[in-house]
Design a binder for these strands. Structure first.
Length: 542
RNA sequence: CGGAGCGUAGCGCAGCCUGGUAGCGCAUCUGCUUUGGGAGCAGAGGGUCGUGUGUUCGAAUCACACCGCUCCGACCA
């Protein structure tokens, strides 16, 4: 099965979901219709993405422009992400805190680059009271704040303020803090999960006595993100360092993990920043060293957000909707009883209940298996397709014959179809409970990763050494799948880097990162012809 | 915020050019039939056609403004 996205016009124009839907559409079908759970396929990737978010019941837009409502199934995925990542953050010695969402304007102003980077996307609170004036409810001019508050776009400054008070001596270091919070960045072009005005994230902030220790922390957390993305989200990534022009405002170095979406675009899925003493100097985060002198701390910050959910959708989704890796599926196994208003319904239900109870006692990925018996009063067939669209890893259907024969019939969401046909697999109840269930969940987790990993590996092209090669690789229609290029460069900076960036921009390309794994020797710089010092990934990006 | 396109029932769309006061499929509800699984038949509910102003005897349809969405550009986790 090809994992590459379908190209425009490659398949029938629309893969209608239900037979009757086909009649409603003004399309002439020359080929046998492929019935899918979505009414759109990945050839129109942006529309497909929105359809998955909607049909999988993940989220919807809200009355506030750019802000989204995360629905139970989408939030359930976030809760799984939080739970497992929180465990890993704590396992590396960090503690959770909570800081205010309001930051005094003067705090933000302290670090010059930091202000510049965020000034354009700030929400500002200026009043603390409303008043009816001329029949209109509006901010009371007499209740103006002496100092405006910005709604945090990130918390370096307010946490730095606390750090300055908390840290006195080298014995207070390292200070390792994390917080789960919402942040606001006034985005011009919102997209559900990928870029919203308000989003949920986790932000780690640490302070260290030495540069070496802070750099190590920065890399350690990048590695936590890499392994989390790959092991838990089944989303292969390339970890590496961002070029100078893509750094976090105020950082010395920024590292990222980059994931490849099914349209070939790169998604920055997590970042880790070494901040040097920039914020420490701006905010006086100092400590007395063991020789009695005063030193500035070296600080770091790192974060991942609800954007990860968008990454999961665009990594694993198919033409039937979402496919969730079992490790983050709010429900890993969903049992759909096939009821038909007949006496044997009672037996079917009892059989389902005992099955769900037995499955719920199993463990996988170090936790109890999450099972749901779907008793919603809608047609059984409708239930099945709802769970297909939502991406439940295993969907079990139980009819009277299963109940009587001690069997179960299941579908794997990752390999739902054989050609166009849905694959329903029958197996003995005991066998399923005792071996299959756990084994299948592990297998699905693994197979989703392998599929995505194969796509990533197959679509990072090396060996292009000149600009003409870049142009030809990224030529053609924008609808077409384009992967990434891995090229050698001389790592220019300042104005020279800007030139490179401008050139890349003509092809809508950006430098993603310089992968951590580098070869021993380098081809000459693709841009300047000078000796190469590093390999970087260039790609179109979200 | 600039360029383009689009906003008609929960979803997907037709109607708009050539104004006469709203239609299709899916979904929803009811009844009957059906039942190893995305069922059939009959009937029903649901829309002040994004918002406002204007033109007109009459506006989903024409004009203007605003709002929102999508794509492209600038910005970004």
């Amino acid at each position: 099965m090809s994992v590459r996205p379908l190209r425009a016009g490659q398949l029938c124009p629309v893969q209608a979901a239900r037979p009757a839907l086909r009649r409603a559409r003004n399309f002439a079908f020359s080929e046998p219709l492929m019935q899918r759970a979505l009414d759109i396929n990945r050839s129109r990737f942006a529309d497909w993405y929105q359809a998955v978010v909607r049909d999988a019941d993940m989220a919807e837009t809200s009355p506030v422009r750019g802000a989204m409502v995360i629905k139970p199934w989408g939030y359930g995925v976030w809760e799984q992400i939080q739970q497992e990542l929180d465990r890993r953050i704590k396992a590396t010695g960090h503690e959770n805190c909570y800081f205010p969402m309001f930051i005094p304007l003067s705090f933000i102003a302290k670090e010059a680059e930091h202000v510049e980077g965020f000034a354009k996307e700030m929400a500002i609170v200026t009043h603390h009271r409303l008043k009816m004036i001329d029949g209109k409810l509006q901010p009371d001019p007499e209740a103006k704040l002496e100092e405006p508050l910005v709604v945090r776009p990130t918390s370096e400054t307010i946490i730095g303020d606390a750090f300055a008070r908390w840290i006195k001596s080298h014995r207070d270091l390292p200070l390792l803090i994390n917080q789960w919070a919402n942040v606001v960045r006034w985005e011009m072009r919102p997209r559900l999960f990928l870029r919203t005005t308000e989003f949920l994230w986790q932000e780690g902030h640490t302070a260290h006595a030495t540069e070496a220790e802070a750099v190590e922390e920065t890399r350690k957390m990048l590695e936590v993100y890499r392994s989390f993305a790959e092991d838990v989200l089944a989303m292969p990534v390339v970890a590496g360092e961002k070029p100078e022009n893509e750094r976090f405002p105020g950082a010395v170095n920024t590292y990222s993990i980059e994931a490849m979406m099914q349209d070939g675009k790169a998604l920055q899925a997590g970042t880790s920043h070494f901040l040097g003493t920039h914020f420490a100097e701006a905010q006086s985060i100092k400590f007395q060293n063991d020789a009695g002198g005063m030193d500035f701390c070296n600080t770091t910050s790192w974060g991942v957000s609800t954007r990860l959910i968008g990454g999961v959708i665009m990594t694993h989704g198919d033409d039937d909707g979402l496919r969730l890796p079992p490790a983050i599926a709010p429900r890993q196994i969903v049992v759909v009883p096939m009821l038909r208003d007949k006496p044997e319904d009672t037996e079917v239900l009892a059989y389902c209940e005992s099955l769900v109870e037995a499955l719920g006692k199993l463990s996988v990925f170090g936790q109890r298996v999450r099972v749901l018996l779907d008793l919603k009063k809608i047609k059984s067939a409708e239930k099945r397709w709802n769970w297909v669209r939502r991406g439940a890893p295993i969907i079990i259907e139980i009819g009277p014959r299963d109940a009587a024969g001690g069997n179960i019939t299941y579908m794997r969401r990752d390999t739902l179809r054989d050609g166009d046909k849905v694959r329903s697999i029958a197996v003995g109840r005991q066998e399923f409970i005792e071996e299959k269930a756990v084994q299948l969940l592990a297998e699905i987790q693994h197979s989703l990763y392998s599929e995505a990993k194969a796509r990533l590996d197959a679509n990072i092209k090396s060996g292009v050494t000149d600009w003409a090669g870049v142009e030809s690789y990224f030529s053609g229609s924008d609808e077409e799948f384009k992967g990434w290029l891995r090229i050698s460069w001389s790592k220019p900076s300042g104005a020279d880097l800007e030139k490179v960036d401008a050139r890349l921009k003509t092809l809508k390309l950006t430098i993603r990162n310089a992968p951590s794994q580098q070869p021993d020797t380098f081809a000459p710089c693709l841009f300047t012809g000078k000796p190469g010092v590093e390999e970087i990934l260039i790609a179109r990006a979200y």
